[in-house]
Write a protein that binds this DNA or RNA. Structure first.
Length: 460
RNA sequence: GGCUCGAUGGCAGAGUGGUUAUGCAGCGGCCUGCAAAGCCGUGUACAGCGGUUCGAUUCCGCUUCGAGCCUCCA
C-alpha cells in the first residue's frame, strides 16, 4: 500500500519513495533548544514526528531517526550583540551554560518518555559538532557566499537565486516591512554562520575558528549534523511550521551552497497548539509543560490522544476541557480494550483500512475513528478485536495494553468494611442504610459501583 | 505593509461534487432497589456574497474573520 506524505517544499502530497533501496529511511527532526523546558506545543511536534516514524516502520522501513540538541548559538534575536539563549539562561539562573543544557536536555527526554515517544537512533549536540560546522562554513565561504561584519560571518542570501522557495518568500515584500533591521547585514534575510565573542566579555561557550574566537550560528548546526549522520541528501526533514520561513529556508540555502542539494527530499511540518487563539510560546513566558499537566492529575497519554485526534497539519485549540474530553474517551477505550480476551488474530479488513488511513499523510484522526468502529463491530470476535487493536497501537502508541484499572489492593480495610456494610444492607433491602454507606464512602474519597460480579471500589 | 495558511454542529475535529465521520457534552430508552458504568437510539453543521455545474460544504473569485511568519520560537 502506498505511503503518501505532504511535502511543504512541493506544497502537495507526494507518494513516498525512499532515496536508498536498502529499506532505510533518513529522518531528521529539529530538536529542542535546551535553555528552558519544552512546552506542550513543542511536544505536539515530537508526537507528530513519532507517529511519522512509526508509520514508516509500519511500512517496513528501518528509520534512521536523528534529533539534534541545540545547546549553543541559538540567538535571542538576529540583530543583537551576540547574546544567545544558553548564556542568557545561565545568567538568569546562576548556573553555567553547560549545566543549563544538561538539566533541560534531561527534562526533554523525560517528557518524551511520558508521551511514549520512541528514542531517536541518533541524538547529537551542537557543541559536540563544532568542527563539522566550521567545515561547512568554510565550504560556503569557498563558494564566495559569505561576508564578514564586525560581529560575525554571514550568509549572503542574495547569492542564492532560489533563497526562500520553501516558504515562497517574497523578498521585496519583506523589505517593505517596517520591522526589518538590517544592521550591518547586506540583506534582511542574511543570517549568521559564525558569531564572534564580544571583545570585552568572556563567553562560557566559545571556540577557536579561522575567523576568530566565537560560536556557531543556529542554522548551520542542523545542516552540518544532518549531513554527517544522514548524508547531503536524505529522505525527510521535520520541524514546527514556524521553521518554514527562516530556519529551514536557511538550512536549504546552506546545503545548496555546500552540496547543491536541498538537504531533504521531503519537508514536513507540525502545526501549532494554540491557547486563547494564540500560539503557545516560551519567549512570552506563559506556557504549559508536561509537568504542568501531570501536576493537575492529567495523564500524558491523554495529551497524546488529543493530538492524534487532529491532523498534524491543522492547528489545535487547547483548553483544559478538551483535554478532559480526550481523557474520558481514552479511558473508555482503555477499559474496552482491557475487557477483551487474548488469543485472537488481526482482522485483515480493519488492518487494510487502518494502513490506508495512516498512509494517507498520517490521518490519525480517521484511524482513531476506526478503533471505535471496530470496538462496536458485531462481526469481529472479541479476541480478534484485541489482536487488531494491539496491531493499531504499535503505530498510535497509546499503550492500551499497559493500562489496568485502579487496583482493588490499594483500598484500605476500613473502606472495604464500609463496602461490606453496604452489601449487607442491600441484601436485607435496607436501602437507606445502603445509601448512607455509599455517601460515607464518597466523603472518604471512594466510589462504589455495583457490577454483576459484585461491588467495585475506586478512588474518586 | 508583504507573504503563507485556515474558517465544519454546544465543544474538539475528519471528510466529500450528489449518500453528510468520530469523540466529548446533551437528550430519550434499556439495565439497576437507586445511582454510576455499560449498551441502544438521537443532532442535515459546513463564515457571507457571487460564479462554474443538473447539483457545491466540497471547485473558482471576492468580502469578512482567524492563525502563523517577516524579531528568538514546535
Amino acid at each position: 500500500m502506498t505511503l503518501s506524505l505532504y511535502d511543504t517544499y512541493a506544497r502537495e502530497q507526494r507518494d513516498f519513495v525512499p532515496i536508498k533501496n536498502d529499506g532505510s529511511v533518513g529522518l531528521y527532526c529539529c530538536g529542542p533548544t535546551v535553555y528552558n523546558y519544552a512546552h506542550i506545543g513543542n511536544l505536539r511536534t515530537y508526537i507528530f514526528e513519532d507517529v511519522l516514524r512509526r508509520v514508516l516502520e509500519l511500512n517496513g522501513y528501518t528509520v534512521d531517526h536523528v534529533v539534534n540538541i541545540t545547546d549553543v548559538g541559538h540567538l535571542v534575536s538576529d540583530a543583537d550583540d551576540g547574546e544567545d539563549k544558553m548564556e542568557k539562561g545561565a545568567a538568569r539562573t546562576g548556573k553555567t551554560a553547560w549545566e543549563i543544557a544538561e538539566i533541560y536536555t534531561e527534562a526533554f527526554f523525560e517528557d518524551l518518555k511520558h508521551l511514549n515517544i520512541k528514542t531517536p537512533t541518533v541524538i547529537c549536540k551542537a557543541t559536540d559538532h563544532i568542527e563539522e560546522q566550521i567545515l561547512a562554513i568554510q565550504q560556503i565561504e569557498a563558494k564566495e557566499m559569505t561576508y564578514i561584519t564586525s560581529d560575525g560571518v554571514y550568509f549572503d542570501t542574495s547569492r542564492d537565486p532560489d533563497y526562500g522557495y520553501l516558504a515562497r518568500l517574497n523578498i521585496e515584500g519583506l523589505q517593505e516591512g517596517a520591522r526589518v533591521e538590517k544592521g550591518e547585514k547586506r540583506n534582511p534575510t542574511d543570517f549568521a554562520l559564525w558569531k564572534f565573542s564580544p571583545p570585552d566579555e568572556k563567553r562560557q561557550m566559545e571556540w577557536e575558528s579561522p575567523w576568530g574566537k566565537g560560536f556557531p550560528g543556529w542554522h548551520i548546526e542542523c545542516s552540518a549534523m544532518a549531513t554527517k549522520y544522514l548524508g547531503p541528501l536524505f529522505d525527510i526533514h521535520c520541524g514546527g511550521k514556524d521553521h518554514i520561513p527562516i530556519h529551514h529556508s536557511n538550512e536549504i540555502a546552506q546545503s545548496m551552497a555546500c552540496y547543491g542539494t536541498r538537504l531533504s527530499n521531503y519537508w514536513m511540518h507540525g502545526y501549532f497548539l494554540q491557547t486563547d487563539k494564540a500560539k503557545m510560546s516560551k519567549s512570552s513566558g506563559d506556557f504549559l509543560r508536561m509537568q504542568s499537566l501531570i501536576d493537575k492529575g492529567e495523564d500524558p497519554i491523554a495529551y497524546r490522544f488529543l493530538c492524534l485526534q487532529a491532523h498534524y497539519r491543522s492547528d489545535i485549540n487547547f483548553s483544559w476541557s478538551i483535554l478532559e474530553s480526550a481523557s474520558t474517551a481514552l479511558n473508555r477505550m482503555r477499559d474496552a480494550f482491557y475487557q477483551l480476551p487474548d488469543g485472537g488474530d488481526v482482522e485483515d479488513s480493519y488492518k487494510t483500512q487502518f494502513i490506508s488511513f495512516v498512509n494517507d499523510d498520517l490521518n490519525t484522526s480517521r484511524a482513531i475513528a476506526l478503533i471505535w468502529d471496530l470496538l462496536k463491530s458485531g462481526d469481529v470476535s472479541n479476541a480478534n478485536k484485541k489482536a487488531t487493536l494491539t496491531f493499531f497501537d504499535e503505530t498510535l502508541g497509546l499503550q492500551l495494553a499497559e493500562w489496568t484499572p485502579a487496583a482493588k489492593a490499594d483500598i484500605p480495610d476500613e473502606i472495604m468494611q464500609l463496602v461490606d456494610t453496604r452489601q449487607q444492607a442491600r441484601s436485607s433491602k435496607d436501602w437507606a442504610a445502603a445509601d448512607k454507606a455509599r455517601d460515607d464512602l464518597a466523603a472518604l474519597g471512594y466510589e462504589v459501583v455495583d457490577t454483576p460480579d459484585g461491588p467495585e471500589v475506586k478512588t474518586i
